[in-house]
Simulated assay, not measured.
Amino acid sequence: MTPPARLNLSLPAPNGLRRGFTTGSAATAALKAALLLLVHGEEPAEVEVTLPDGDFSLLLPVRNARLTDVGAYAEVVKDGGDDPDATHGATLWVTATPLPDPELPMTFHAGEGVGTVTAPGIRVPVGEPAINPVPREMMRWAAQEVAGHEAFAVTVGCVNGEAIARKTFNPRLGILGGVSILGTTGIVEPMSLEAYMASVEVYVRVAVHARPDAVVLTPGKLGRDYARAALNVPPQAIVQMSNFVGAALDALQEALEETGHPLPLLLVAGHPGKLAKVLNGDWNTHSQYSGMAMNAVARVAGGLGVDGPTVQALAEANTVDACVALLTGHERGAEVWAEIARQVAQTLHHRAANVRRVRVALFALDGAGLGEAEA
């Protein structure tokens, strides 16, 4: 098996900004350092963490690795790069305690400063620590690499985590007591406001000046993958706009005015947790600058005459993923998502009037299509 290639975080991203690593990568590095000390007697200054894709790794600094009465402890200072992130600079710590049988699965526990899930809709069951599935898998891999098994009780904490969490959506999400351990790729792509908006503008201008039949705007991987599969467009016509929906549309409109090239189709594809926010007038969908989209989902459902209990449940849901679950199997679920897609497309078209057609495609986190419509 080919070992993973090491990513160098000191090299800038294509937009010139500095990448960082997630809280999930930080916790995994701390666990690996603790286990290296516990199992092999090593006190590393840095450890290599395998990323979720299995193809790449990160070499991350660790500190304060030490044995405890029941196992071992280590810390990692989370570096978010140039991304605006409430957890940037936070100290994540991990304790690892061996379980009595090496065949037992790893158990996860919330230490001080890491939240506990208290409401459904998160990808972690109620009562569990707010450690998402991908970081859990990364930590299992780390244990297998070091010890050959995963039979450890792992507690993850964060210094001042409860105060940090108040700057996030965690309290609204029903995650109480601290931060979440997150990350689907292990990497934080730099998306700081002015610099990233400037890079989005450049990408959009390059796309438009190539005079394509379609331009694709997408917040992230879901929409990008769909666009590559569904449309025969060149790579430069697919722009990852992150949270900057309004800035991307303004750049598109300006570039079209400059070139005089009529754009036949703008495809905007992604998760409704991002895209439905424009129905609330939120054009920067970062959680620091926008509300959440469940009220928009409920409002559209109510406008369609969906039954009252379902509308109320949508409005009271703690995430849009919970809304997806509520509407899955509902007799009018597909109709709700199609109408949301139509209203989002209409809203986007008002801001990008030089585009002939705007198509919106909505996806669940697992990549399943939810709804698609044009305006």
Rank of each mutant, 00 (worst) to 15 (best):
D213N: 14
A301Q: 04
N170E: 02
G371E: 07
I340G: 02
Y73C: 09
S287V: 00
F108I: 05
R359G: 06
S242P: 08
A364R: 03
D250W: 01
A248P: 06
R123I: 01
T68N: 04
L362H: 01
D79V: 02
Y226I: 07
G161A: 09
Q253P: 00
R18T: 14
A210C: 10
D79S: 10
G80D: 09
A86G: 06
V124R: 10
M139Q: 08
G80H: 09
F108Q: 03
L231Y: 06
T259E: 08
E42P: 01
P212S: 01
V300T: 11
A248C: 14
A195I: 00
P135V: 10
P102E: 13
N15D: 15
M241F: 03
G367E: 06
A237T: 02
H149R: 00
A165K: 01
P190K: 05
P219S: 09
Y73G: 08
A163R: 14
L222H: 12
V179E: 01
M294Q: 15
S57Q: 07
G16A: 10
A198H: 10
A353M: 04
P262C: 11
V47H: 04
E374A: 13
W141G: 15
V179L: 05
L35Q: 13
A296W: 02
G111D: 12
E339N: 06
E372T: 13
Y226W: 15
T23N: 03
A334M: 02
E43S: 12
A110C: 09
A368N: 11
H209K: 13
L59D: 09
E46V: 00
P4N: 10
V179I: 15
E145L: 07
L365H: 07
H350Q: 14
F363P: 01
R166E: 13
I175K: 03
A230D: 02
D225M: 10
V306A: 12
D366M: 09
V324I: 15
E201I: 00
R140V: 13
P61C: 13
A315Y: 07
R140M: 14
G273D: 08
P133Y: 04
V355D: 08
E46D: 11
H209P: 00
R359A: 13
E42D: 10
M139V: 06
L217H: 10
E201K: 09
N132K: 05
L176K: 02
T155A: 14
M292S: 07
T50H: 07
L265F: 01
M294P: 00
A29Q: 10
A33K: 12
Q346T: 01
